[in-house]
Structures are given as C-alpha cells and as structure tokens.
Simulated assay, not measured.
Amino acid sequence: MDYINIIEDDLGEDAIEDDLEILDFVGIGFPRRFNERPNYYQEMDPLGFFRRFRLTKATVLHLLILTEDQLEYPDNRNNSLTPMNQLLLALRFYASSGHLAQVADFMNVHESTASRVVAHVSRVLAALRPQKVKMPEPQESVRVQNEFYNIARFPKVQAIIDCTHIKNSIPCWTRGDNAEIYRNRKSFFSINVQCLTDARLKILDVVARWPGSVHDATIFANSTIRARFEAGHFPGSVIIGDSGYGLSNYLMTPLANPVTPGEQLYNEALIRTRNSIERVFGIWKRRFPVMAYGLRLKLVTNFTIIVATSVLHNIAREMNEPEPPIPEDINEEELNYLIETQQIEFEAQDHPGNNVVQNEIIRYFGQL
C-alpha cells in the first residue's frame, strides 16, 4: 500500500510532513538507529588500554588472530560487533567487578548484547585450553623439575596443586534444592577450582566445575590428572600439595611434626616451592578482577569464564606481559582482601607412615 498517496489524497500535501512523523511513531517506515561503537584499540593510548583491558595491544592482536574466525559474523546485518570489539568487551568484563551494565555502557551496547558476547567469547577462549593449558610433554620433564629444584632444591617436582574459591554470586534460589552445596566453609557461595602450576607461574591444569563445599582432596580424587599419575604417565615425578591432601607416592605433603634436620629441610623446601601456586592465584585474580569479585552470570557460563581466563593468564605469561596496574574503578585494598579470603585451608589428612618416596626425599635432605 502506498501510504504517501493516501495522505496526499485525503489531507493534502501540507499535511504530509506531520503525518510521516506519526507513521514513524507507530512503526511504519521507522528508521533504525545504530549506536556508534568506539574503536578503543586505535583510539586509546597504550597505558590506558593496558589498564582497562589488562593485556597490551600486542597480546590482544595475537588473541584476535587466534579467535577471529570464530568471532566473525557471516554478514554485517544489524550492525554486528566486530571480532575486535567482541574481544575487548569480554576483556573489559574480566577486568571489572562483574557488573554487565557498566561494561555495556563502556562499549556502547545493550546489556543483553554484552551478556551474549561475554558468553560467546568465553567459549571461544576456553576452546584454546588444549593448546594453552596442558601438562608438560615427557621430553620437558627434566626442564620442569630443574626449574622447581632451583627454587628450594626440592627434587622430582612436576607441578604444584591447590584449589582456590571463585565467588559465585548467582542468587541461591536459582539453583533450587542444590543451593547449599555451593556455600563454602567461610559461608559464601563459590566454585572450588583446582589448579596445577609450574615454576614459570603458568597453569598446567584447571578443574572448574565443583561446588564450594567440596573438599580439595575430593576434587583431586575425581580428577583426570590423578588418574594420569596413577597410570604412570609421569614416571619419576611428584606433585606438591598442602596438608589437606593425602600423601601418596606421587603427591608430597608437609610433615606434621618434623624432628630430624632432614625432615625440617624437607618441610622448608616444600613450603617454599609450593608458594608458586599462591603467586599464580594472586596474579590471575589481579589481572582479571572479576575472578575475585565474583561471577554473576549463568553457572555454566561462570565455569567457562574461569577456564577462559586461565587460558588468557597463560598467554600473558607466554607474551611476558607485566602485571597491569589496578583499574581506576577498583579499590586495591579491597581486591587484595578478596584474594586473601578466597584461600580456604582444610584440616590435615591422615598420612600413612613410611612412604617410600617421601622417605627417599627426606634422606636426600638429610645429606645436604
């Protein structure tokens, strides 16, 4: 139907302009408006970019090369976001205190769009896990053990294991009858995340699917990495954990009451070496503050974000990225407090006596 002709015939040409405004109002021929999107990669200075997105421009460009094929839309209908803007939106969310509305305003998009983009980009980044978050190959074992040995002379170490809690701020009633399993020993809802790290402060393995109430030792007992050690995939190697884990021939834990000089040196070396994983958790959460403030999206998306940021952490280590300054809108003392309180210690496990591997290492320290 020709609406312009109808208006001319019934009301005359003088009324056309006013009536077209009415037609636009009721949705006939209403022109769509598209927000102008900022180009932060081009417009922002390097320090400001690093502060807000937590990675340098060179590393973000490297990320774009790795992910562009998965982020590219098949056409430009509806003024779709470019791969770079999608990537920057997700990075800005990881650098925030977890409020989507704030990130959406910063990127000049609707909050629902920001939510979809964060989820999609996180899935794409998490898909890089097999290449970026992995245990060393057998031919690398000697190098890894030497790097750990150089810290405190503890021999045979392949990795350090520990768990950290990521606040899970979804309202508890959205999880039905299972809500309370996410409440940890410090009474806040969280996801208990198991990590293995190396002496270069990279994450070698991450398990991000267990509720906050689950014991660290339970997560390890049900993990793939335990099965691999049990199957002998890492011969002659051990991992180091705290006293919350059970002692075994491949998992070394501190002695409760060291007496001899060898036992005391064993404990000191183990504690100094194990400090590497505490540093990893601090660097990881300071680079991506959302990991300390808490995740407020769907539970499955929260799991994906944890894996995605572990991938980004490793890429940052590979690119020799310095630690970025604290974002301007985040209080440094508050962030540090959150990181410290998310480490939860469990009671010491009952350790069997006369462990062959542990005794061998204690004898080694006794000869120093």
Rank of each mutant, 00 (worst) to 15 (best):
E323S: 07
P325W: 00
N267Q: 10
M291T: 15
E332S: 10
I225S: 08
G12A: 05
D205T: 09
G353T: 09
R52Y: 01
F220D: 00
L128K: 02
A231P: 08
A15Q: 12
T113G: 07
Q194E: 15
F148G: 03
L128S: 04
I170K: 01
F148Y: 04
Y149F: 13
R363K: 10
P130T: 13
N320W: 04
N35T: 13
A199Q: 07
N302V: 09
P130Y: 10
F303T: 03
K167N: 13
H313D: 07
K156H: 13
E345S: 12
R51P: 00
I277N: 03
S276E: 08
A101V: 14
D9L: 14
L87P: 02
P46I: 00
I361A: 13
S115H: 13
V280T: 13
H62I: 12
A231V: 08
A95Q: 00
A199C: 06
E318D: 15
L201P: 02
L201Q: 14
K285I: 08
F229G: 01
D14Y: 03
S276R: 03
R33E: 15
T82D: 04
V238I: 15
L128I: 12
T309E: 02
P38I: 00
I166D: 01
Q102W: 11
E140M: 11
E72Q: 09
N257K: 11
F53S: 02
D198V: 13
E328R: 04
F53A: 03
A199S: 12
N355C: 15
L91D: 09
W284T: 12
Y245Q: 03
L81N: 12
R279L: 14
P289N: 07
C172R: 06
I306G: 06
K186I: 08
S223M: 10
N355V: 12
R228F: 06
Y73Q: 10
Q367E: 15
F220R: 00
K202R: 15
A101L: 15
R296L: 06
N108I: 11
G98M: 09
I315P: 06
A159S: 08
R279I: 11
P211S: 07
M107K: 01
R92H: 13
N184K: 07
V311A: 11
P324A: 10
D162F: 12
G232T: 06
E17Y: 01
L88T: 03
L338T: 10
Y73P: 06
L368W: 12
